[in-house]
């Protein structure tokens, strides 16, 4: 399909004239708006629990059986 998804492919040459700064700004603004929306979502407990578990497991491993 030629989707260019291989990072090693030779598309390093800039064949496209850069977008005018004004338009870059408009796109950047929307991108950040959409992104900030995602960042502001509350973090599910599973991640806090997960790190807690990883830490506990490691402490047990290091200290041997108590």
């Amino acid at each position: 399909m030629g989707t260019g998804s291989d990072p090693k492919r030779g598309d390093a040459v800039i064949t496209q004239a850069p977008l005018p700064v004004e338009l870059q700004g408009q796109i950047g603004q929307r991108l950040r708006e959409a992104y900030v929306e995602l960042i502001n979502e509350p973090v599910p407990d599973r991640f806090v629990d997960l790190l807690q578990k990883l830490k506990q497991r490691e402490e047990q491993g290091q200290g041997g059986k108590s």
Partner: peptide, 11 residues
């Protein structure tokens, strides 16, 4: 250069 090119093409 690849990154710059990709960013630009995405924009």
């Amino acid at each position: 250069g690849t990154v710059k090119s990709r960013v630009n093409r995405a924009r």
